[in-house]
Structures are given as C-alpha cells and as structure tokens.
Amino acid sequence: MKLQLTSLALGCSTSKELCARFATVNPETAFTTQNAYKWVRGKATPRLSSVYEDWARILGGGLTASFIAASSFDEFAQMIRRHLPVPDSALTKLRHDHPSPPAPAAPASGPAADSPMRPPSLRPNQWLAGDYLAVSLAWSQLKTGNLILGRAEIAPADGGDFTIRYTESLFGQDVTMTGAMLCDGRTAQAAVRCSLTLRLYFFALRAPAPPANIIGGILSGAALHDFEARAVAGRIILIRDHLKRGDPLHRPSYLAASPELLDEELDHLGYAGDPQRMAASRRLLALLQAPPPHGLIEMPPDALGALGLDFDRIAPRIAHAGG
C-alpha cells in the first residue's frame, strides 16, 4: 500500500515508471522491474536498507528510511500528504482495495489459549532482534584511543517490546547490562542495569531499516573502572552477527583502533572478505572517532546511513534476499 501510494503521489501510472524514479536517485538501485512486481503487489517485502534509503530520497520532505519501513500506512500517508498532492479519493480507494484485517479475538481462558499451534503475530521492527558485535570507543583512561568490543543480544519481549543484553569484558571480568528496549520506528531506546555496579546506562539508538546489519547510536553512563565515576557518553555501533556461533571467535575486550584488526572481527561475523569490507572498517572507525560538532555527541544520520549501505553490500547473500 505504501508503494502504491508513492506511485500515486509521484504521478507514476506503472511500476516501470516508479522504477525509473528510483533509478534517478540511484542508478544501481535494487528497485528493479522484477522486484517491483513482487513488492508493489504485496507478494514480498523489500529487505535491503538501500531500497528504503532510495525511497526516502525520491519522496523528500524529511522522510527517513527507518520511518518508511516501520510506520503504519496511516502514518506514512499523513507524512506524504504534507508535501505531495494525494486526493482523498485515492486514499479511500487504496483502503477499499486493501481492507485492514479484523482485530484478533480476545484469547479464551484455559489450556487452549496457550496452545503452541497458534500462529505467531507479525511484530513491528522485528528485524531488530539478533546477535551483534558492539563497537565503541573505550571509556577507561588507561585505554584511551582503543576500541571496546562488546556483545549485544536483542530479543522480542511481551507486549511488542524487546529486551537487550549487553556484555563487556573489562580487565578479565565479564560485565553484563540488561533492560527493556522500546522502539517507535525511528528510535530504539533502553535503560539497562549493570550487574556489577547496579548503575544505570542508557542506549539511544537509531532504528534501522531492514535488514538491519548495523544499528548505531549513543551509549551513556558512568565509567565503570574510574574512581571519580566520570559521566561519559559515546557513539556505539552494533554489527549483526550472521554466523551466530555458540562460542564466538571474538571475546568482548579492548582492541586497538586499527581497520585491519576490525576487518578480522568482521570476518568472524560472516561478512564477505574483499576491499569493500576494509572500506567498511575504515568508515566505521571514522564515524566513531569523528569530533562532536558544537560540543554535542551525536550519531549523524547521513554518515550512519552510508555505513549501513557499506555493510549491506558485504553481508551474506541471504541478507540480500528480495522476498
């Protein structure tokens, strides 16, 4: 429905014309005629984040790739109509052609209500779930300039939310932080409690577009091994682990800020080994180390989006499936 509404708003009468609009912003776009046939008819959903980035560029108006991917149809329509002409009659026809499914009935009490045969419901932002290598700059004054490698696990929770479990190994001791994660389609935020100090730490992440090979944002809190418990915040990148080994080849630890060493870690996650992977390593380091503008520590959306495209190109082929 979002793609059909996009066609109407842009004045495209055929999928071929819509493909041409995507090609104007990215000659190598994955929005090809073959894929458009499936996607516009709802037979499959785009999973490449580059498709959503291209989509945001042709629509303009400040729309982001993550919003296009995660928003409801009504939210999407409301945003488009702020700067593109869409007649009420067109929206009425779209809703008539694609009626919303009836609301599910309240579950009955008793054993049948907990039957494992009930089909699972589709979760918004479901692509967030997964195992990740977390990369950030070290907070310890003894390790200034190094990276800290951590492990992050994001899992679905009751009520449509998520949980996050983040682990670092500091001076030979594993430190775990856990908490609930809330995602509104644009941001993914979590307040986590440290198992060692019982202090709170805060993740402010940008919700990714599928297939969510990376998630970027800010981690803030107080330095663990610091007498003064300095208040610290820094950029953090979560990189999806496609191999999901039971015993990962990398351990949460400090690492010299070297693109060569980071490239080795990406190999342990299943990303393709070629010059593009080294380029992704260099871009990731540059993003983490970039000086904060105007004294504010932020995760620049454009830089993060470019990094996401780098990782989409080197991700295992299964992550590039169009269906």
Rank of each mutant, 00 (worst) to 15 (best):
G61M: 08
T14S: 15
T163Q: 07
L128C: 05
T29A: 04
R82T: 15
D274P: 11
V25K: 01
I318Q: 12
L219E: 02
L200K: 01
P259C: 09
L59H: 07
D114R: 12
R82P: 02
Q4P: 15
L196S: 11
W55L: 02
M278L: 15
A180Q: 04
D267L: 15
G323A: 10
N125E: 10
H96I: 06
A233L: 10
R123Y: 01
Y37G: 09
A212D: 05
S100G: 00
Q289M: 10
P293T: 02
R313M: 11
P101V: 11
D312Y: 04
T6Q: 14
E264H: 14
L285Q: 06
L48Y: 01
F202T: 07
P46Y: 09
L296Q: 13
T45N: 05
I148Q: 14
G295E: 06
T176K: 07
G234I: 05
A207S: 11
L266F: 15
L255I: 09
F73H: 07
A256K: 06
R282T: 11
I314F: 12
D131L: 13
T29C: 08
F171P: 00
S15D: 15
L170N: 08
I164Q: 01
H98F: 13
Y201N: 06
A106T: 10
D226G: 02
A303E: 11
Q276M: 13
A279L: 12
D310G: 01
F31M: 12
L128S: 06
P208N: 05
P27K: 08
D184M: 05
L243P: 02
I236G: 04
N125P: 00
E264D: 15
A280S: 15
L94S: 04
R235M: 09
F311I: 07
